[in-house]
Amino acid sequence: MLRSYCKQDALVVALDGELDHYCAQSIRRQLDEMLADPSVRYLVLDFDKLTFMDSSGIGVILGRYRILRDRGGKMAVCHMNPHIARIFHMSGMDRIIPELDRA
């Protein structure tokens, strides 16, 4: 179960464990259940406790970005370790999704 914190229209979700193709299904389902509430317009994904991510994670992030964008909302990420940040930058997602802990 993902830990999350919601205040008004903003939702912060702390990812943990690993985000590969196997884990992606469950993480995607849990995120989408939280995003089913249409009042959520801002999503922050906290990667602090995520120990591994491969390109399946890119698909999950991009899919949630589109959901938020389609309802006029925004998404951000934080606390990516260097390895996860490398994949994030490789995919070019840093150009559309801000990293809150980076200038």
Partner: peptide, 14 residues
Amino acid sequence: EQERSGMGFSVMQT
């Protein structure tokens, strides 16, 4: 439609 990113081989190469 499966939210595959198409980045797999790029990651392996990098």
